[in-house]
Design a protein around this nucleic acid. Structure first.
Length: 104
DNA sequence: AGGGTGACGATCA
DNA sequence: ATGATCGCCACCC
């Protein structure tokens, strides 16, 4: 568990129920702008997180196959509405408080 | 050290 | 909308 990873996971845990965010936004909120890929990687190897509340830019589901179905199902269960593969961000995006960049 | 990788993102044809 | 391309960056050989 690296420090960057712990910061990223902490940010993800702050996303409230029925709200969503994006890989890029989580990276910025954790203090690591430009590290969207780290967010995805951290998510991939962790458990017990609201992983389904993290989407690609524009509110698009980036997973494919069964995982994509699972994510959509979980979100809809929380009341998040979809327009095809995307969620209405105007309505469901969680706005993180501004965060400062962290040292790498 | 150097090259490949990816649940990314922005841009363009 | 869809696919290609390029920029990006920590990880893992």
């Amino acid at each position: 568990m690296t420090v960057i990873e712990s910061h990223i996971l902490a940010a993800i845990r702050r996303i409230p129920r029925a709200k969503v965010s994006t890989y890029g936004a989580v990276a910025r909120a954790a203090g690591y702008p430009g590290n969207a890929r780290r967010v995805a990687a951290a998510l991939h190897g962790s458990t017990g997180l609201p992983w389904h509340r993290v989407l690609g830019a524009g509110g698009e589901i980036k997973l494919r196959g069964d995982f994509a179905f699972e994510q959509k199902f979980r979100l809809q269960s929380e009341g998040v509405t979809f327009r095809g593969r995307r969620v209405n961000m105007r309505q469901h995006e969680f706005k993180f408080p501004a965060a400062k960049r962290r040292a790498r």
